[in-house]
Design a protein around this nucleic acid. Structure first.
Lengths: 234, 234
DNA sequence: GTCTATAATATGATAGAC
DNA sequence: GTCTATCATATTATAGAC
C-alpha cells in the first residue's frame, strides 16, 4: 500500500505531572483547576484531530492516529469526546467562525477597492495561518457538506447575500466595474484558498508555499493586482 | 451517523445477456468480442469508482459501494482490478491527461488575451463536464498526492514552466500587464475549478450549479471579465 | 468469469478494574 | 480520569467450486 498513513507516533513533549508542579494562582472555585486541565487536554485533542482529519478526511482518519498524535490512549480520547463524529463536529464548529469572520468587516462605508484589497490580504493570510482548517473545510464541502449544509444555507448564505448588496451599491455608484457580486466573491475565495487547498501542487511546481514570507507577499500582490485591475471602474 | 454513505444500491440498467443478442460486426480476431466485453465492464467499473471515490475519497470508499453501483459483485470487481489501490490508480491516471490537456493549446503565436479568454472558457467547461474528476484530483492533492507527486513534479511542472515562458514573452512585448505568470496560472486554475470543487457551497448560496447553462455562461463571462481586465496592458 | 465461503485485519465503541 | 481487555462490525482480499 503506497498510500501510507501517518507514522505510528510522532515525538511529542509529554507533560510530566510530577508532584513538584505548583497549583496555579487563579483558583477561583473548587474544581476550577481540574476543569482547566480538562480543557487543555481537549485543546490538545482538537489540534491532533485537525491535523489528521485535514489530511485524511473523516473516513480516512482513525481515532488511533489522533490519539497517538495527542499522546493519549484511544479510550481516553473517547472519554473526552464520546464518539468519532462528535470529535469531528467539534473541530468543524470551531473552524466555522474563523471561516466567516473575514467577510464581516466588509462594509458599505469603505472605499471599495481598498476594502477588497484588504479582504484579499486577510483571506490569503488565513490560508497561511490555517491551511489545515481550509483543507478540512474543503474536504467537508466535497463530501457534500452533510454536517455543514445547514450552516452554509443559513449563516453563510445570509452573509454573502448581504455583501452582494454592498457590492452592488458600489457598482451602482460607479465606484466599481459592473461584475456579478457573487462571482466576484467566489473568485476571491477561490484564488486565496487555492494556496492552502492546493499547497502540495504549488509546492511541486514552485517548491514554495505560504510559510515563505516572500512568497506570501508575492502571491498577495499578484492576486490583488489581477482582481483589483479586473474590477476597477473605467 | 449523520455522515451517511450511499444508498445501498442505485437502480442501474442491467444489460441482459440474452441469447438473442447478435455478435457485433467487426469481429477482427478470436476473442475480440470477449475482450471488448471485458473492456466495457472495466469502463462501467471506472465510472462507478469515480463516482464513489470523488465523493468519499480513497479511504472513505469501499469496494462494496463501488461494486453495487457498477451492479457486480465485489469479488467480480476484484477479478478486473486486483486491489482497491490498483483501481484507484487506474481511475486517477485516466484523469491526468484530461487535467493537463487544456494547458497544451496555449501557445506563443496566439493573441494573448484571446488565448487566455479561451483557456478560461475551456477550463470552466471542464469543471462542468468533469466535476467528479476535479474533486477526485483535489482529494488526492489534499492527501499530499502520494500517487501523483511524480506526475506533479514531472509532467505538470514542466508544462507550467513552459507556459510561464510564453506568458513572460507576452508581457515583455507589452501585450499583457506585468504579472507573475505562475500566480496568473494559479488564479485561472483556482477560479475555474472552484465551481467544481465547491459546487455544494455554491449550490447552498445560489441554488445553482454549472449544469445550468445560463449559470455556466454567467460564471464564464464574469471570470473572463475580471481576469482579462486584470491583465490587459494599459 | 462469476459465485460462495472465509480468512485476516482494522477500527469504533463499551465494560469494568483501579 | 485512565487503563486493560473485549466486543461488534466493516472491509480488503483470497481460495476454490462451478
Amino acid at each position: 500500500m503506497s498510500i501510507q498513513k501517518l507514522p505510528g507516533k510522532i515525538p511529542t513533549v509529554r507533560q510530566s505531572r510530577g508532584e513538584l508542579q505548583r497549583p496555579p494562582i487563579d483558583k477561583k472555585e473548587p474544581g476550577a483547576r481540574r476543569l482547566r486541565v480538562m480543557e487543555a487536554k481537549k485543546e490538545v485533542i482538537h489540534q491532533a484531530a485537525l491535523e489528521i482529519f485535514s489530511q485524511y478526511g473523516f473516513y480516512g482518519s482513525s481515532l488511533d492516529q489522533i490519539a497517538n498524535l495527542a499522546d493519549i490512549s484511544k479510550t481516553n480520547l473517547l472519554y473526552y469526546f464520546g464518539s468519532k463524529e462528535e470529535l469531528y463536529l467539534s473541530v468543524l464548529k470551531r473552524l466555522l467562525h474563523i471561516w466567516l469572520e473575514p467577510l464581516l468587516n466588509f462594509t458599505a462605508d469603505q472605499e471599495p477597492l481598498q476594502a477588497i484589497r484588504e479582504y484579499l490580504r486577510i483571506k490569503i493570510q488565513y490560508s497561511r495561518n490555517h491551511p489545515k482548517a481550509s483543507r478540512l473545510f474543503c474536504f467537508e464541502v466535497m463530501h457534500g457538506a452533510p454536517l455543514l449544509k445547514d450552516e452554509l444555507e443559513g449563516a453563510l448564505r445570509e452573509l454573502v447575500t448581504q455583501k452582494a448588496v454592498v457590492i452592488r451599491h458600489w457598482i451602482a455608484a460607479g465606484r466599481l466595474a459592473p461584475v456579478d457580486p457573487y462571482h466576484l466573491i467566489f473568485s476571491m475565495w477561490a484564488t486565496t484558498q487555492h494556496y492552502a487547498d492546493y499547497a502540495v501542487q504549488i509546492q511541486a511546481i514552485l517548491g514554495k508555499d505560504l510559510t515563505d514570507d516572500e512568497f506570501l507577499e508575492e502571491a498577495t500582490a499578484n492576486i490583488q493586482k489581477i482582481i483589483l485591475n479586473g474590477i476597477a471602474p473605467r
